[in-house]
Design a protein around this nucleic acid. Structure first.
Lengths: 206, 206, 206, 206
DNA sequence: TATGAATGAGCATTCATTCAT
DNA sequence: CATGAATGAATGCTCATTCAT
């Protein structure tokens, strides 16, 4: 029987279960995480899992949703400040915040991403993309010349997905060929060069 | 007991098993693929799986290795021609070949990538990266001015991983926000701008 | 997950499993007894076996331990009375008790011994040997002249192991060459003669 | 297809299979010995096993029969000499021969006995018992007074089975409480005392 | 509400046996 | 005759889910 948690106690239990799910998936991956693992980690009986979730899949769904919610809120809370910086700094600071976010709690979120396949991830990634687009929007508001960049959708798509994956991949690599800062500088450069070249082209054609 | 296939019959069986593995993993993902699925798809008895592979994991390993081998051979066979084109065309043609490769056999390889998590993928991706670096090297041989680009490792890391993931992600999206060609153009532009801007900088500082 | 049975229900289940194990091993021998046989006989699901035992081997272990515990308790409960009788009667009554014990429950224990190889048996036989030695000790306390028998360890070793095996063998024989009582008399005679001859020798040498 | 080996080559193969069976069972016990183990050890293909034996059980049967045959022939070849010695020496020398037999070939036969359960053993033990009875008979021919011993069947049953099991058990014990020689002396004493006491009784009653 | 004992469908793996070569 | 690739029934064990308490 799935219940909507109304009382405070129930709310706490639901949170404990989702937390436990994060911990277990980070440790073992989702397909090696059993309901018993989650229940034990949450400190509740297996039966209680089914009081609040229809099945194991729904626990992972809730976990992924909370993960996305936290990424989005991290981006949005930084948007006002970041959007006022120049493009180089935006990238570098955003990446630095992202790294910090992924690595907190003993790299819990990074481990989650590593264990998750891209197919699953895509179901949840849209709100993150939206938050990044809003950051981009806010940036353009503060840097009006940016509006002259052509083809923003395709470019931002590449930067966003490519950027996310490059970072996750680098942070996951036990012997990375380049440092995190080199990657951050590289990405900042790529985007910076792209924008400035586009602006040049816009200037020439006017 | 694991045997090295000596007879032709045995070789055929091994190939059938790996093929079946591709088909099943593409359809259901590896953790939902059972040995029975593979055996049925391959048209052999379950026991035969264990004549040539120690366990299920080893079948997936063989599958992944063949996958990587084919990607690498696709890249390498195109390297001589691609490396002589200019950068825009290189990117667009490489991406076009990649798309074609991923989508053949009813998108078999694309499906495989979607079902594979990045953690597993990283074990196998190194030879692909190497093939792409060799393409880059060959390109630079034919376009000597390219050598003036700073920080090639960080930039190529981003282009390679970011590019791969952007494409996989786009091809996997049932309602993609941009077309494949837009993405290809976008990527070509990004790289083109990056290179030309770097060359400008190199020219100014000399 | 192995649990220590706390609730009464759980205790009942554990006992049912061990009982079922006795029945199945008596019927088919341990290597032909499957977990499904045990579960069906116990009237529980296969999964329940693994709630209380790590694996099949542990069920057999528990069974053997209970078997030994019962033999030992049978011997010990008879020790006070037996040790006061004279040697002839001790043997005959002990063997009679043993026969009764082995044959109860449709010869369950006898069948178990028949199906068990000596290698396995040896792991569990030590407590039985100890109980028999204690009976011997108690006997000597009541018959102080017995202390003059030389080489008690070697003799008792032979009597104990030889006696056990002779009886098991005889009871297992569908067409035994001698009767149980003849064997019991024979053993009593052998031991009696041995003791009396040893006492004679002791008397002469003093 | 089961063939009766007529040619010399076939005879050799059959022997190799039985030898392999001894080696494998000694190493792993019969229930952990697979047909592949036997075939590999014998240096033949699995298929060849089924040229000469209907199934795995028949290989073990042949092995047990050869085992028994060798024990019997060992006893019979020693009967003429042993039967002329006095009772003490008969026992000690017989046990010594038995030990030597069981321990040769890296304790192969001893290991076989350890791995075999008494139920299986009983099927094959009868010829051994017979050989021992014949030794007893020969002994009595040379020591006519022995005929006065009462109840020879029961006594010899106990001595034979009890003796065999005591020895096997002792040789199998990694930390035996008594030495082999102590056991041999003990057995010799027990039998010696039994016989002499019986003769005394016979003398008195005449 | 919360629990955890019980369940049994489902899985990976083994191995005696067969039969085409 | 000899081989060994192929088979698939059978096994030990797992784990998501249920339900009596």
């Amino acid at each position: 029987m799935v219940r909507t948690p109304k009382q405070q106690r129930a709310k706490t239990t639901v949170d404990a279960i989702i937390d436990a799910s994060f911990i277990c998936v980070a440790k073992r991956g989702s397909s090696d995480t059993t309901t018993r693992h989650i229940a034990d980690t949450a400190g509740v009986g297996v039966g209680s899992l089914y009081e609040y979730f229809t099945d194991k899949e729904m626990i992972f769904e809730a976990m992924n949703q909370r993960f996305v919610k936290e990424v989005v809120s991290m981006i949005m809370s930084n948007t006002p400040i970041l959007s006022k910086k120049n493009s180089d700094e935006v990238i570098r600071e955003l990446l630095s915040k992202l790294k910090e976010f992924l690595c907190k709690n003993d790299e819990r979120y990074l481990k989650i991403i590593r264990q998750t396949n891209s197919f699953d991830l895509r179901h949840y990634i849209e709100p993150i993309e939206k938050a990044l687009r809003e950051l981009l929007m806010a940036y353009v508001m503060n840097h009006p010349e940016g509006v002259k960049v052509r083809n923003i959708p395709a470019a931002s798509y590449t930067f966003i997905y490519g950027g996310i994956f490059s970072i996750v991949n680098l942070l996951s690599d036990p012997a990375p060929p380049i440092t995190f800062d080199e990657l951050a500088d590289g990405l900042a450069n790529i985007i910076g060069h792209y924008v400035s070249k586009e602006l040049e082209i816009a200037a020439q054609s006017s």
